[in-house]
Simulated scan of single mutants.
Amino acid sequence: MSFLEFSDSVLDWSLSIALAMLGVAFVLTITRIYKGPTLPDRVLGLDLLTASSIGFIAIIGIDTGFTLYVDVAIALGLVGFLATVSFARFIMVRGDTERSPVQETQETEQRHIRKPIGNHEVLR
């Protein structure tokens, strides 16, 4: 086995391992976006999703040898940055970042449950 064949096999294994690790990061990021619990957590998850997508594009670009993927990754990075800035501005204008939208719906549902008080039912 020559050095060129050895380096080629190491590159293939490295790319496969990197794709697997990015796939795990992608799945964990999607679960963080789904679970929340707050809006800033979801925005950070979307930012990390953009970063891992850039990693996928870079690895595919290295594997195929096309330099066009670098331009696509740069464009995605710029769009992801602008999206993060706009989400941050939205959060600052909105103000309330500690409550989750899912938690708000559960609280409103619990407020309208009839609970008996003595012999009478009262709508809370």
Rank of each mutant, 00 (worst) to 15 (best):
M1E: 12
S2H: 15
S2D: 15
F3Y: 10
F3G: 03
L4T: 10
E5Y: 07
F6A: 12
S7N: 12
D8M: 05
D8Q: 05
D8L: 09
V10Y: 09
V10N: 01
V10K: 01
S16Q: 11
I17D: 01
I17C: 04
A18W: 08
A18P: 00
A20G: 13
A20Q: 06
M21I: 15
L22C: 14
L22V: 06
A25E: 10
A25C: 06
A25Q: 13
A25K: 14
V27T: 15
V27I: 13
L28E: 08
L28V: 13
T29Y: 10
T29D: 08
R32E: 05
R32T: 04
R32W: 04
Y34G: 04
Y34L: 09
Y34H: 04
K35E: 08
G36S: 06
P37R: 01
T38Q: 05
T38M: 11
L39P: 01
L39D: 09
L39M: 10
P40S: 05
P40D: 15
D41N: 08
R42T: 11
V43L: 06
V43C: 02
L44I: 07
G45E: 06
L46R: 05
L46V: 02
D47I: 03
L48M: 13
T50K: 00
T50H: 06
S52P: 03
S53Y: 15
I54W: 11
G55T: 02
I57S: 05
I59V: 15
I62W: 12
I62T: 14
F66D: 08
F66I: 10
F66P: 01
L68H: 15
Y69H: 11
Y69W: 12
V70A: 12
D71Y: 15
A73R: 08
A75S: 06
A75Y: 06
L76A: 10
L76G: 06
L78G: 11
V79I: 13
G80A: 03
F81Y: 12
T84H: 04
V85K: 03
S86T: 09
F87M: 08
A88S: 12
A88F: 10
A88C: 08
F90S: 07
F90A: 03
G95K: 03
G95N: 13
D96L: 14
T97S: 13
T97G: 12
T97N: 11
T97R: 15
S100R: 07
P101H: 02
V102K: 07
E104K: 14
E104H: 14
E107D: 02
E107A: 06
E107P: 03
T108N: 02
T108H: 01
T108W: 01
E109W: 09
E109V: 04
Q110Y: 04
Q110A: 12
R111W: 00
H112N: 06
I113F: 00
R114Q: 09
K115Q: 01
P116T: 01
P116L: 02
I117R: 00
G118P: 00
G118C: 00
H120A: 00
V122M: 02
V122L: 00
